[in-house]
Design a protein around this nucleic acid. Structure first.
Lengths: 127, 127
DNA sequence: ATATACGTTGAAGTCCGCTCCAAGTCAAGA
DNA sequence: TCTTGACTTGGAGCGGACTTCAACGTATAT
């Protein structure tokens, strides 16, 4: 599969895919004789993983580190596990933050809806 | 309250507070005769709101826009409501992304734990 | 064979959200 | 009065994550 096709498949630009590879978020992709990337099954899997992790906000660095450890072999199992746990904690706390903010947004939205429905000018505490 | 105290109260630097004001994420703060910021009740409320929204990932721009509308008066109620709803949608989809990624992380973590507990070398599908 | 469409690289550019700096003002203590 | 330290501003600098660019190689269709 060409870089363009992969880009279309996942909705990202070829540039981004090259950047992901360069920064180590996916292992080096196989090439044709003339040096053109030819994505295979497992390459696609890595791309998909990287995109999923990035879309949740994991740092490029963390993802690259995971890939590096994976490529180093079974000896890095514990390190990989630790890394995944750290990232999970980060996501969990981010999740909490978002939940809290959503609660607040919802509260404000309700206030605004009430204010608009009734005679408007009756509410104001904006923070 | 001085900028330093506010910073300590919320765990951010004075630079950040000045930046928030400059970028419109909080309304202009009252000053003493000699031009020094003197945060009052409502200033603190705005600071707290901005920090909450930023910590969930809302853009500086969106927050500044909300503050701008608020300062323009009651006529902007509907616009403000719309803005809040848009931001809520963004947060909700982000929340979904994180949940999905967490599911995936959890799955992998379980796999790693299993692999470590038993004889190790028995699992491999890394993506 | 030549056009054109896509691929490659390394480096530079962009946007965001701070963060730091220089130069200057102001207030309180020795 | 002089020093010390916190405050002010505008602007520059920084780290992260792309994105664009220039210069070039390759493959397919006419």
């Amino acid at each position: 599969m060409t870089i363009k096709e992969v880009g279309e498949l996942y909705g990202v630009s070829p540039d981004t895919l090259r950047y992901y590879e360069r920064s180590g978020m996916i292992p080096p992709v196989a090439r044709t004789a003339s040096g053109i990337r030819d994505y295979g099954e497992s390459d696609l899997g890595w791309v998909e993983l990287a995109l999923c992790m990035r879309s949740a906000g994991l740092s490029v660095q963390a993802i690259a580190e995971y890939v590096r450890l994976t490529r180093e072999g079974d000896a890095t199992f514990p390190e990989r596990l630790a890394l995944l746990c750290r990232q999970r904690e980060i996501l969990q706390s981010q999740q909490k933050q978002i939940a809290e903010t959503l609660k607040r947004l919802n509260y404000k939205i309700c206030k605004y809806e009430d204010a608009l429905k009734s005679g408007k000018l009756d509410w104001n505490s904006d923070t």
